[in-house]
Write a protein that binds this DNA or RNA. Structure first.
Lengths: 325, 325
DNA sequence: CTAGAATGTGTAACCGATTACAGAATAACA
DNA sequence: TGTTATTCTGTAATCGGTTACACATTCTAG
């Protein structure tokens, strides 16, 4: 391994000079700078980030805490995070936490042990209690979270409900996400704020987790439980897809007999037949912005907007009936 | 920040003793060990991994290089990797590389700068040339790769083709992945080894990348190009799903008019209607085993099987016609 | 009872960077 | 020319751990 000492020796200067040339601090003569640069190239030297990190008590790494990597919403989120982080010279340490487990605390300790510069977390109740460090909450955001990136879920709910009542709703079933997930409540609120003033008939079914397995069993269950429904507002695309499949299997035609709207706009929602109409959450954008916000927090830039609220959008495909207007 | 010095002072011993107690090397008296342990608890001390890493010239981190995080095959892979790594006390640094770009080299340098213990890579042509370190290739594996985890793609191709010819194939279209992806060739070989001895009519269409966008345009293209087909063997589930959607949109019934088989068994293939019959690649298993293999390589365990070949399986759902036997 | 092995402990060097500080060289200016 | 300000450079301390080495103590055995 080539160290700064080797470079110094090769260039005939001290390590201090090499370091100054590298980091462009302090005074370095033109002559010295050139010698150092050519030595660096010749020896193919690159500084050891670990040694830097030890001295600086921080590093060029950020920790990422996710509740379940295998959730299809996350890949795009991660891509946004990775891209933004990389552009800012940071790399990402991955932490996957089972929903509800206390592994989050372990990861926070681990991140601290690695001198990470900050943490991005989509896990509720992530505390930097013991190890205070910059942190940005993602997606599952609470009131008290200082820095956060999230989507306007009330609006998302409104958009979804609006799309439904514009299209001969009939009997509506709302599949609501678990109350423990902050966004789920807001969506339901949004939906109800639209439905309640009308005389549309609706029922609410609350689900537990967001896993595929649960989506499948829920899909069967609701048909058994509620019989004839004409419109379904799902808590996310996973559930919407599961419901669509179950409906088709039972011989219903979509959207003629049952119309379905999802939430998230995961990449797959456009690959099913009929294409799923859904509320788009800008996953890539959210990740990108969150990483950017974290980096700015790390750099102690002045930040006017610490809580970034992104707007969801209605993406119309073919799982809803024709609009009435 | 609590350091080993603070613990030493608090326990009334030297830092060397604390270190020995921590790592359970060397001699430490029972009495000293107890004092150290209670000091650690009282002060809530945890060792700084960066300082350790600097001295040891290695760390408890492994680098992960993926060609495209947003590919739906990867989440499960990552979950497997993360889980296995965590069980072995390692954490994962994420690297996303655009297909074909040279960012891979940059990441390898970055990993080296971070003293990672090893690298897991699904990017072709990943070289530890300049910075030799343990490496395990994943998924996209070449002959020369020393340590690798991959699936038996020839067998996968055979399984897919077999499933098709067992079920009134008619005219078959093979959508083959890009020749640059090692596995794609093997799959095609497997498929042809089954089809060629029969008198089944087939055509081959080669695709470029593995993106959703390409899948959609390809789906349209093949219907325009080849007109009536009765069976389609897709290069992966993404393409299979896109084809199914396009077929349904054009009024074909699946599997009656056209039967489709995919590859990968991504979680979504069970959420479409009709359920996609496909060849399952054990993504979680692959990730788990790869991380495990890497850790063993890092530990310099003796390893009997450096190249782990996993077996794909046929997962029967509803996108193929009834078997004839 | 004593030599030698086994056990326990602390001091200090080391890992590879950054930077405070002091001293040397050069520039600016009267 | 002498004085001061500016630029340049090297030595050494530092970050928080690990471990080689030396020394002290205890144990074992003859």
């Amino acid at each position: 391994m080539v160290t700064i000492k080797d470079v110094a020796k090769h260039a005939g200067v001290s390590v201090a000079t090499v370091s100054r040339a590298l980091n462009k601090n302090g005074y370095v003569s033109e002559k010295a700078r050139e010698k150092v640069e050519s030595s660096i190239n010749e020896l193919n030297y690159y500084p050891n980030e670990v040694a830097r990190s030890l001295f600086q008590k921080t590093s060029k790494m950020i920790g990422l805490l996710l509740p379940d990597i295998s959730n299809p919403y996350f890949p795009l989120l991660m891509k946004g995070i990775e891209e933004s982080a990389r552009e800012n010279g940071y790399s990402v340490i991955l932490g996957n936490v089972e929903e509800g487990s206390k592994a989050g605390d372990n990861y926070m300790r681990l991140f601290a042990q690695q001198n990470v510069a900050g943490v991005l977390s989509a896990v509720e109740g992530t505390l930097s209690h013991h190890h205070p460090m910059p942190i940005v909450m993602l997606d599952r955001v609470l009131e008290g979270d200082d820095y956060a990136v999230y989507t306007n879920d009330v609006k998302g709910g409104i958009l979804a409900a609006q799309a439904i009542i514009d299209r001969k709703p009939g009997k509506v079933l709302i599949i609501a996400g678990p109350k423990s997930v902050p966004g789920a409540i807001d969506r339901l609120l949004g939906i109800l704020s639209v439905l309640n003033p009308t005389d549309v008939e609706y029922e609410i079914f609350e689900t537990g987790s967001y896993t595929i397995k649960e989506a499948e069993t829920t899909a069967k269950e609701i048909f058994d439980l509620y019989g004839k429904m004409n419109s379904i507002i799902a808590s996310n695309d996973l559930f919407a897809l599961a419901v669509m499949k179950e409906a088709q299997q039972r011989g219903y035609q979509i959207p003629r007999d049952i119309q379905v709207i999802g939430y998230d706009n995961i990449p797959f929602s456009q690959l099913v037949y009929p294409g799923l109409t859904t509320i788009s959450q800008p996953a890539f954008q959210a990740g990108y912005q969150a990483a950017d916000l974290l980096v700015r927090q790390i750099r102690k830039d002045t930040i006017s907007n610490k809580r970034i609220k992104l707007d969801p959008e209605l993406v119309v495909r073919d799982s809803l009936r024709e609009s009435e207007e």
